[in-house]
Amino acid sequence: MSTPAFEGVPLPEIQIFPERLLMASTTEVLLNKLYAVKNVRQINIQGEGLPAVIKAGPGTGGPVNHPERRKIKVRGEDIELKIQVGRVFVEIADIDFVPQALKDIEEVCKEVLPFSFTLEVGRYNKFKPTTTDYNKGLVK
């Protein structure tokens, strides 16, 4: 979602694991509400890939037109959602802020998600560029 510079230390992440895969509309509301939580530094999302075109079989090359693959607006910015979201990782600016952030995020999830979910604190994503990122030219 956003790529702030590396902090020097791995910061904690709160993983939101919903019982169901989220629709694009729910994802949009959830992300906007999560960004409003204090001390949220960045949010990463993970889920099932939604291809734009069919890549196998007799229908190869045809459009998939999946309704959940569409643009959503997060913090006023248009983002092309290419996955059906299954997990949300909310990075918190400092470990001391985690207990309060957990409470706030739980409130947001209870409000937005009409089904159960679990919250977990840990570090789930890489926190500094990897060799592959250099190879791919993603790091300047």
């Binding site: 019982e19 169901r20 989220l22 079989g57 299954g86 089904f115």
Partner: peptide, 19 residues
């Protein structure tokens, strides 16, 4: 592209289908 049998259902209770 049958992927989806072991994936959580979506909000409508449907099995995931990338296509």
């Amino acid at each position: 592209t049958v992927h989806g049998h072991a994936v959580r259902l979506d909000e409508n209770g449907m099995m995931f289908d990338a296509w």
